[in-house]
Design a protein around this nucleic acid. Structure first.
Lengths: 215, 215
DNA sequence: ATTCGTGTTAACAAAATTGTTAAACAAAAA
DNA sequence: TTTTTGTTTAACAATTTTGTTAACACGAAT
């Protein structure tokens, strides 16, 4: 019983994620979601009460997963530049896997600003806090031009995420195939690092499990 | 007759723009649009045939206006850095006025990739072409690290537009009021220039009409 | 075997939204 | 004034989409 329940519930969420995050059907109906999962539409209401509550859950889980990924990297004990390099690598790769994830987050939060507000109120440490010290040191050592942690972090997110958000526009303007755009995004990892630090990106050591440092 | 027609038609479009671009109701119904304009809902169909065709028109006009603004600046004869400074200034200011414009463009083009494809096919010169020469010179003079015009342009758009796209998220994370976020965006003009060029942004001379240079 | 609970389905009801139409209306043209 | 043309409105129809419910299936517990 319990097993079945979790299976179907999970299945629906997984398939909904594919629809939203990979295929980009941001306004998918309950029917389309049910079809994708190969289940009866009523099950969506059985498990999630309403379409809206299901979206809430998806948004919440998605934000949570992203937060964890980011924090794991930013709160690690890696040297600053390697930390940022890994952040770029991870965010871009994640974006390649789920091209419409950011679009989902952004359109959902634009629609219901309260949701993101509640989510943010759960913990008071923002990601820019995690790099504040590192950044201050770099600036003191004159290894980077003075910049606030907030602006630094927004710059970084912008450079990583915008090309995904604007995929359809950019890809069309520059006449790229899907494959070419993929290559372009991977190239960008180096470009982003270069733009931020004005120097070549270091080779990343083979990915190993990062140990979480701070809360 | 003709006068009246243009008035109402224009009125509806203006109010729809407010709804979409300023208030961020990206999924506004025909009824909501009609209410905003204070007209009968049927008029929307009278003038635009269908909701979809109205959105097409809005998207087209919006893209066109943005293209003109950008081209006017990028094809001017200003020195490179001033050109870019003005681009940043214009794009950010425009974003302050219409905080959801980019969201609209992006969600519409994600929904109907054909629309943007057709729009782009109308002229073959992309904005990155307009800076190609300038950029090559800068690189040759070692005044900027080597970078392709495409990456340069995407960087620039990303840094300017992302903070608007992700407004609700960023504003909440960093706990800013609307006023504070506005200030933050204006601060960013200098930050963006700094990030791109690694040097202070020059003071912009008083805005004068720019003369268009190339097509 | 019967009961019970969970999961599942089809059928139904309700709401929201779009699109159409016929008639009212206003203003210019005849 | 009457006609005509273009504009506006209310009412209607059709569709889409969400949400509910009653019945069914089926394994587990009694």
């Amino acid at each position: 019983m319990g097993a079945e329940e979790l299976q179907t519930e999970k299945l629906i969420k997984e398939k909904a994620k594919i629809l939203f995050f990979q295929k980009g059907f941001l306004n998918a109906t309950t029917q389309e979601i049910a079809d994708e999962a190969g289940v009866n539409r009523a099950l969506i209401h059985y498990y999630f009460r309403s379409r809206e509550q299901m979206l809430d859950l998806l948004l919440d889980e998605t934000l949570e997963e992203k937060k964890v990924r980011v924090r794991t990297i930013l709160s690690s004990e890696l040297p600053f530049r390697e930390k940022i390099a890994r952040y770029i690598d991870t965010v871009v790769d994640y974006g390649l896997k789920y091209p419409y994830l950011e679009n989902f987050i952004i359109s959902e939060t634009a629609r219901h600003p309260d949701k993101i507000r509640e989510f943010c109120s759960r913990d008071r440490i923002k990601s820019s806090d995690l790099i504040e010290e590192d950044l201050a040191k770099e600036i003191k050592k004159k290894k980077i031009a003075p910049i606030s942690a907030t602006h630094f972090m927004v710059n970084l997110s912008a450079l990583c995420n915008y090309p995904l958000l604007a995929k359809s526009v950019l890809q069309t303007i520059h006449g790229m195939t899907d494959a070419a755009y993929r290559k372009f995004l991977i190239e960008r990892k180096r470009i982003i690092f270069m733009t931020i630090f004005n120097e070549e990106m270091p080779e990343l050591p083979v990915k190993k499990e990062l140990t979480k440092h701070r809360a």
